[in-house]
């Protein structure tokens, strides 16, 4: 499976739409796209998980380094439209406590 990453920038907000699977093969590409966005002070990075149905722990590693980078550069990251299977991974690892995550679109928000 592949991962496509679409970035649109809009007045201090970067929208990152992911489609596909985040795993050991696609994670480096995601990291290369995501990390530079978090290095700008005040920037808000919103990652859309609507079309991500599988992510493994390598993917979590990418979001952990992105989170560390937002703290260092005073930017912000939030993850939206996350599906249950992927959310479970963030929940088990305790990351839901420290990352801003809005889980599944319930009843179509």
């Amino acid at each position: 499976m592949n991962l496509s990453i679409d970035v649109t920038n809009n007045e201090g907000v970067s929208n990152v739409v992911l489609t596909g699977e985040v795993d050991a093969f696609t994670a480096p590409k995601l990291k290369d796209t995501l990390l530079p966005l978090t290095k700008e002070k005040g920037q808000v990075v919103e990652v859309d998980f609507q079309d991500v149905n599988y992510m493994d722990s390598t993917g979590l590693g990418v979001f952990i380094s992105a989170l560390k980078s937002t703290k260092e550069h005073e930017s912000e990251m939030r993850l939206v439209h996350m599906q249950d299977r992927v959310y479970r991974l963030f929940k088990i690892t305790g990351l839901t406590e420290i990352i801003n995550i809005e889980s599944t679109v319930q009843g179509g928000m």
Partner: peptide, 28 residues
């Protein structure tokens, strides 16, 4: 520390229970 939940098996009830306890992964 954010580890995959284990399970506890109760012999008397013949039932499994998830050992799901919160905790952040190491190193974050």
């Amino acid at each position: 520390a954010g580890h995959e939940p284990g399970y506890y098996y109760h012999k008397d009830r013949d039932e499994f229970e998830e050992i799901d306890v919160p905790g952040l992964v190491l190193g974050v």
